[in-house]
Design a protein around this nucleic acid. Sequence first.
DNA 1: GAGTGGTCTAGACCACCCC
DNA 2: GGGTGGTCTAGACCACTCC
Lengths: 237, 237
Amino acid sequence: MSAKYKKIYEELKEAINDGEYGPGAKLPDELSLCQIYDCSRMTVKKALDLLVQEGKIFRKQGQGSFVLNKQMVNDPYQIEEIPVGGFDRARSHLAKSRILEFKLSFASSDVAKALHLKENDPVYDILRLRLYDGEPTVIEHTFMPVNLIPGINEDVLNHSIYHYIEHDLNLKIASAQQTNRADVSNDLDHEVLGLSDIEPVLVVEQIAYLDNGMPFEYSFCRHRYDKFKFTAFSLNR
Amino acid sequence: MSAKYKKIYEELKEAINDGEYGPGAKLPDELSLCQIYDCSRMTVKKALDLLVQEGKIFRKQGQGSFVLNKQMVNDPYQIEEIPVGGFDRARSHLAKSRILEFKLSFASSDVAKALHLKENDPVYDILRLRLYDGEPTVIEHTFMPVNLIPGINEDVLNHSIYHYIEHDLNLKIASAQQTNRADVSNDLDHEVLGLSDIEPVLVVEQIAYLDNGMPFEYSFCRHRYDKFKFTAFSLNR
DNA sequence: GAGTGGTCTAGACCACCCC
DNA sequence: GGGTGGTCTAGACCACTCC
C-alpha cells in the first residue's frame, strides 16, 4: 500500500475527481511529475498507466496526458450503477440480506467444474435475498467449497462472507470472472422480487478467485431489471 | 506492435492457450524469461502484467507465476459470449446488418451530453438490425457527430463504420465505456426480433472514444436475451 | 528543433515463501 | 538461505506532434 506509484496514482485521481483537472485538461508532463513527486520516470508512468486503464485519462505521444471526457447519461429507471467486478464492498454494506435457504450439497458437475472440485465434493449452497432500502432487489445463489472456506454459518451469512474470508480466514480475494445476461423472470423472481411476467432480471454469473488461484465462489445474482446496471471501461487492444 | 514486451506477451499467451502451460502450471521465473527472451526484467514483468490483467495468470511474491484456472459453465441458451468492450471486430464481420432508418438529427440534450456536443448539433441517427446466421438478434441505435465523422452514407453502413473511421478517415478508436442492463422488450423488439411479451432484451449502452479523447459514438444495442452474454474479468483493487 | 510519451536497460533493495 | 516477485532508479534511444 505504501508503493510510491500508488500514492501518485491516488493523488492524481483525487485531483481529477475534485476537478483540479477538468475534462480535457492537460496533466503536467512526465518530467515535471518526476520533480513534483521526487521519483523516476518509470514510477510516474506506472501511476499514469493505472489512470489510463481506469479510463480517467488518455495519453498521446508527442502531446501529453489529458483527462478523458466521460459521461453516462440515459437512465430510464434511476438505476444504481455498479462497476463490473463486484469488489465494491462498500456498497454491499448498504444492503441487508435475508437467508432464504442455507444447506450443504454435493457439487453438481457444473458447480464442480466452476469451482475446480470433483463431482459430489461438499459445497455450501446458499440462497439469499438482498434488500436495498428495504426493497427486495437481488436473489443470490452461491456455491462455495466447504473444504476451502470452512466454518460458514448463519452468523457469517448475516454479516459479510467476504469479510469473514479476508479477516477471519485471512485469505485474499484476488479476482473474478463475470458474465452478464438478461433472463425471463421465473416463479421465485415473481414471488420474492415482486416482478410481473414481463419484467426480466439481469443475471450476473460470477466465479471469484483467491490470490492462490483457487476459485472459492460460484454465484448467480438475479437483479431486478430496474434497479441495477453494470458499467465497464475497456481499451482497444 | 514491434514492442518486445508485446511479443513476449503474445508468445506466452499462445503457449497458455495451446496448453503448453496447463491450468495451475508454473511459468518460468522472471530471470529465466529474461534469458529466454534476451531482455531485462522490467520488460518481462510488463508482459506478465498484461497476462495478469487479462486473467490468464496470477503471480505470488516468493512463489512464482501460475496459469489461472478459469471456466465459465452455465449456459441455458447456448449463448454467444462476448468480452465487454466490443472491440472484437472479427465477430462483427460475421454479422450482416440491415438499415432500418438512417437520418440526420439535432442532438437531444442526452446525446449532446454523451458526445460532448452542444444541443442541436447535427448527428447521424442510425437504426440498424444485426443478423447472425440470418436471424435478427440485435437492434442497434447509434448517434455520431457529423462534424467529427464526416461522410457516412448507406454504403459505409453496409460495410463497417469502424473500418471507415479507422481506414478512410484515418482516426484511431481508443476506448469505450459501457453499461449493461436488462429491459422489458418493446413493440419494435417484438416486431423485429420476434420476441414475445415476456422475453426481455439485454441493453448495452456505449460511448466510444477516439485516441484524441473525443467521443464519437453513442449507441444502444438491444440484444435478444437468449443469444448474447457479456463477459469480463476484474482484479481486486 | 523542442517537447512529449513509448520502450528498454542493468542494475538495486526489499518482502515474501519455502526449506 | 535461496528463490521469487514488487518496487524503484538513472539513465538511454526512439517515435510522434507541433512549431
